[in-house]
Design a protein around this nucleic acid. Structure first.
Lengths: 325, 325
DNA sequence: TTGAAAGCGCTAACAT
DNA sequence: ATGTTAGCGCTTTCAA
């Protein structure tokens, strides 16, 4: 910028004015400055700008795994809103590791992101307190924050699971299995709660062997499913707690002779062709809602932290309407 | 930092030493500084650090659409490599718009990212020349750069398509359709070239109506497919140019009475259950390879720009082995 | 309309 | 082992 000023034969501040489109520069001076900028290939250094202005026009998004198809649309929606507000998006995957989540969040804060959107892996977020006090706008998505008060945007996991399981019950099933994610993950617990509520609503007892929470790694899911389908009283239907579980369950069930009904929490590409009944959540809406809330806060809305819940949608496609074998 | 120094009763540089884990501080002093840091909730301002050091420890990734399942694993792989090198990842989607690609790239450069990984939407990248001269390491992925010399990591689209079409020919097909992405996209053209090569290898002529390049939007693909399947000499097999085309094609073909063989460029989740034969490319490997090359360059390797091509893998699953109707 | 000077928070280089 | 000074590239403030 100094060089540009020298070459254009003007003061530093004049260049700054031109670069930022501020008024108070004659057309002629502006032209001279523009020429110098071209000639020198000058590009404003935003780091210095940030240092001076205090705002970075960037937000950080911490999620679990960008490679999971559930998070792609969410991330994209956040990016879209950020773009509309002139902000860039810094992305990080926690790999479901609370330590890594914290590391990423703090790295983003050190970069002085204006805001933070977090899909938490951990359950205690008090480490964020100094940042919140320092004014970093924060929204939690998909799962609630632990031990701090912040804006939260969730899917109605409880209601969705309850509706999905009730759907299976309505189609005659009495012995229904549930395979979900690890019990420290909020959505897994909520969906299990929804399952239990639906069973209770129908006056059905839940046998121990019908419920399995744990890693969504295929081997684990396969084993859990095999256990439910073995023995004297095998389940006739399965409620799969998320897209990862569903993918493995569908593969396993495809190889069986006796049909097992299936309802999946989360939609999956081409699930329509496979006739998989799902409880769909709108991950893009989740991201959009969270980002909009974040920017409203950055624009100075002083509302107290709120908790929003987005509804799910049951889409019958065949697998959930199979009668008990 | 000044405050921390004051509170701990030490000099500025001593705090800096502690914060950065530099040697030359007594255990006792360090403790006092740490206490002050805790008490004040101090977190180093990386913007200032960047301004001083010249390196930001961040890289920018411009791709087409984070919501496309092809890019999730790619982005994740890049992030993983970046993490291993202590760098953060800034993400942007061009939405296949060259103007937006340029806007994103230049925004990243203004942030002084150390490096850039670009899946280009445009075909002329001379706007990058000043940045390249300024030392921004750059790797293009999935599609080559236009009119500049940079590292490039591609999938062997030509070879993959040629092998896929040859596979259909080997199963008896003579009238084979090709539906691909827009002709300004390099991979679309390469795959079409592969298709033509395979047909020529077998001594087969290609009728005008068998080839269709254009948007991958479902309506467009549906129309193109309908046209190929109508008339006196309908195609008996289809080569789908990418995952978006395949999704629509599979849906359409599922509704037809006469079976049409299908080979897809790009694998898709659950394609195994649907029996879709694919020419798979490894998008994670693409991202990993590009990122590794980028960091090797950042670490000072002075190799000239190179062009790498990753192989594809033909996975027969049924749809590509159907005989002609 | 234009510019000079101060300073954002940090680190490199050089004292002490 | 510790502190001082200068300056990274920009914007803010105030003066011309």
């Amino acid at each position: 910028m100094k060089d540009v000023a020298a070459r254009a034969g003007v003061g530093l501040k004049t260049v700054s004015r031109v670069v930022n489109g501020e008024p108070g520069v004659t057309a002629d001076t502006e032209r001279r400055v523009q020429e110098a900028i071209e000639a020198l290939g000058f590009r404003r250094n935003d780091s210095a700008r940030v240092l001076r202005k205090g705002r970075t026009a960037s937000i950080g998004l911490v999620l679990e795994d960008l490679a999971n198809p559930f998070y792609g649309p969410l991330s994209r929606a956040v990016e879209e809103v950020a773009r509309a507000h002139g902000a860039l998006l810094i992305n990080g995957s926690s790999a479901e590791d609370p330590g890594r989540e914290q590391e990423l969040v703090l790295a983003f804060c050190a970069r002085r992101v204006d805001g933070l959107i977090v899909i938490p892996a951990g359950t205690d977020h008090r480490y964020l307190e100094p940042e919140l006090r320092a004014g970093v706008a924060t929204v939690f998505v998909d799962r609630p924050a632990g031990r701090i008060e912040v804006d939260t945007v969730l899917t109605d996991s409880f209601g969705g699971a309850r509706a999905g399981v009730a759907h299976l019950i309505a189609h005659g099933h009495r012995r229904i299995g549930f395979i979900g994610d690890q019990p420290r993950i909020h959505t897994a617990v909520e969906r299990l709660r929804g399952y239990r509520a639906a069973m209770a609503d129908a006056g059905l007892a839940v046998a121990d062997g019908w419920v399995s929470l744990g890693s969504t790694e295929p081997g684990r899911v396969r084993e859990a499913l095999a256990a439910m389908l073995a023995g004297p009283d095998p389940v006739t239907a399965l409620f799969a707690g998320n897209n990862r579980v569903t993918v493995t369950a569908v593969r396993e069930l495809a190889g069986r002779s006796r049909p097992v009904a299936l309802v999946s929490f989360d939609d999956i590409e081409l699930a329509d062709l496979l006739g998989i009944t799902v409880v769909a959540q709108d991950s893009a809406a989740l991201g959009r809602t969270a980002a909009e809330r974040l920017f409203r806060r950055l624009d100075g809305s002083g509302e107290p932290p709120a908790r929003l819940e987005l509804p799910t949608r049951l889409i019958p496609r065949g697998s959930g309407e199979l009668p008990p074998a």
